[in-house]
Design a protein around this nucleic acid. Sequence first.
RNA 1: GCCGACGUGGUGGAAUGGUAGACACGACAGACUUAAAAUCUGUUGGGCCUUAUAGCCCGUGCCGGUUCGAGUCCGGCCGUCGGUACCA
Length: 884
Amino acid sequence: MSEYNPAAIEPKWQKYWIENKIFKTDDTDRSRPKYYVLDMFPYPSSSGLHVGHPEGYTATDIIARYKRKKGFNVLHPMGWDAFGLPAEQYAIKTGTHPKITTKENIKRFREQLQSLGFSYDWDREVDTTDPAYYKWTQWIFLQLYKQGLAYQSSVAVNWCPELGTVLANEEVIDGKSEVGGFPVIRKPMRQWMLRITAYAERLLDDLEEVDWPDSIKEMQRNWIGRSVGADIDFRVSGHDGTGNQGLARKKPDHEDVIRVFTTRPDTLFGATYMVLSPEHPLVDVITTPEQVDVVKAYRAGAANKSELDRTDLNKDKTGVFTGGYAVNPCTGKDIPVWVADYVLMTYGTGAIMSVPGHDERDWEFAVKYGLPVVEVVKGGDVSKAAYTDTDDGIVVNSANDEVSINDLPVAEAKVKITNWLEKKGLGEKTVNYKLRDWLFSRQRYWGEPFPVIFVNGEPKPMRDEDLPVTLPEVERYKPSGTGESPLATIEEWVNTTDPETGAPARRETNTMPQWAGSCWYYLRYIDPDYTEGPVSPEKERYWMPVDLYVGGAEHAVLHLLYARFWHKVLYDVGVVSTKEPFQRLVNQGMILGELEFTAWKDADGNYVPANALEPGVEYQPEKLSEEQIGKKGTDFVITGTGIVIDARSFKMSKSRGNVINPDIVVEKYGADSLRLYEMFMGPLEQVKPWSMKGVEGVYRFLKRVWRTFVDEETGKLRSEIADAEPDRDQLKIMHETIKKVTDDIEGHRFNTAISQLMIFNNEAMKWAVKPRGLMKTYIRLLDPFAPHIAEELWEMLGETEVLAYTEWPAYEEKYLQSDSMVIAVQVNGKLRASIEIPSDKVMDKEFVLAQARGNGQVRKYLDGVTVVKEIFVPGRIVNIVVRG
RNA sequence: GCCGACGUGGUGGAAUGGUAGACACGACAGACUUAAAAUCUGUUGGGCCUUAUAGCCCGUGCCGGUUCGAGUCCGGCCGUCGGUACCA
């Protein structure tokens, strides 16, 4: 071999690593520190790996290879999140069992990942669809059940007739299904729910303990949505209010009392009407006979609204008067009770007190329906808009015989009025969360069956020894049409007996959502063959928590919140020893398609500048090539015309045709080039556009590295590589490179680490004598990034031990020094000269300043002026401040 | 609307408050070649001036501030992207 030929060396080393189990984790060694570096495992889709996958996977692989060299016992596994809708939809279309499709897809994914040279311990592969795996998913569900955290509920869920299934909120986008874009309506069904709300406070508090990006923590906080306020009871007018004393506190749906939640108890005196959600049980009690028809019609309308309609109607609030009144506990006045669907039954108590003076929604509604607006916080003009400032506002018009909160700032007023309410038994301080319980069942075939049977219609959890409950073989995968899963149609599976008593029983036909398997897979990697539980306690204690978790930001909220929830439950039942599963989290940025240039044409075929497009008008896009465009100011234009065009990158998608297949890249440039390019593109966390030219750039770099070591004429190691003593300059750049690459890997700045590897090679290419020791050090630095070429060159250097476990080089400070340093000289902050100072003098302020003043360029600026001040930054810069 | 991230050459991007543009792509010029590819060498933010590869001015979305010194810190705008949305 003479030229750099990745197609030859990459398969060779991949085979070697796998056959010799080079990256198998030693699970008997407890003497070394551990490092658990985890990727978000992929859903093995039929379309194969996407260039987005290897981005995070390369980053973690670099870390894993680096940590091994640093002496850590590294756990770096991979597996498959293989339940999911696409396999089931394919089965419906073709009749192919999802198991078969899944198996094929996994095989393809595994081959693709192995062709990229990732250093996974393949003996720890997990597959969420494997009964040996989902046995423990079911077991964990039973723990939740036993903790009272799983319950059934009939809830109005997102029913999608086209998909024949119920969707979670997160699968509905703008009132349409995320998959396929079909309409979604609301339909009540029996569902399993998980009481994640019981863990809301801990999920919020423990974010303090993890090393995650602030933005992700903030997103989780917003999702949990903690708000502090008060529950307040309003007596229904015309009722005697017996329920208003003490008893009502425990019975919020007492028929005499409307309980509301508010974050603004300070505005209670300004509550001029109330609103119940259409689903609120008290609507029937309160509605007067005259209003029954109109209320009934309104509720029916609200119930039939799809999510899309609800979104559309956001701008225009609607509601009807019930005819009933309630009593404002502060003013003692009767206020009307309305029904409106801008109040949600699923948040707070499903009822609100309306303070139109100080809440925008209430203001809008009050103006529309002619309800009174009262000012109780001074600072705005409530006849024009609601005044919602809580920092500067001062409470007014808020006193009765017993209490006054007038003249207090909002925060103090809240405390005082809440205390008064508590004393009177009319209300209390409360905390509410936006977070809802987790809808945990799907009407699908391809998911984990619930380990639950129904005996005489009552749910009964199965015993541990009866797990797993496996999926039956079926003939057809079509939804039953009733909304139940296809499992409901398989009589011989559904009808069973209670293994404990032999009594006839029916199986649960719902299956678990895809999130289930991914909630705990990181534990199974630790001990994939353990049969006594999800993971053995000893190994769990050694390996947990995950030290570094890398994946896409699209999982910032849901997957990470669900997994944290399960982990805390497992912590409570003693299965795991850490409160949080993922100590450090990094989100890789999305990789976009190549930059595209688009010009726009109107109906007549004339170009319209991109900055003059009018909304609502249809334009024809025209894709332009790079030769057709120029730059004018900050805009891109069609060459010679001044017509502004759009220049941007788009998310890769099949429909746009800008998807890059990693196989093609590997075939043409090799896995090392793909890995290197994905890291060289820019910071890991950032969104970045793909560029094939960029791939060629790193490919050329690897070719140059090859030629630094290999004589292409002979195919042998270059004769310049010799057992010679390195000179001072060589040592300097070597140690600079060690320092930079080490620091940058630790800081996940892979792009600048690679840039330093390039700088070293550019230098080393010029050396007439290349000291063998330095060249070997360089290979060890290159190895985490481009392991195949590194391994090959390592072998050519005569080494027999595999590179993976060689020691990471250390730099020495003394080699970083040079004889002299260049110091910048500024006058009044402007650079005027650069002077060279011997290294042993750079700390000598007087010497350096004297040199600076004496410099010919500098002197010009010192003539005839007064030196006011001299700034001296050792080794960096001097700044002479002058006046005159 | 709210929350978050980000605005630096033709492009991707570098830059502990201390010489803006490292490294790479592209482009241009040259070498090698019958030619092309590959490879190598040089130039490459804009402008002024010059024999000069000496020097000068401008320049990190816009406006202002702090500082001897700001891409970096602070305040206010504008724009792009992501998340979220009647959450009381």
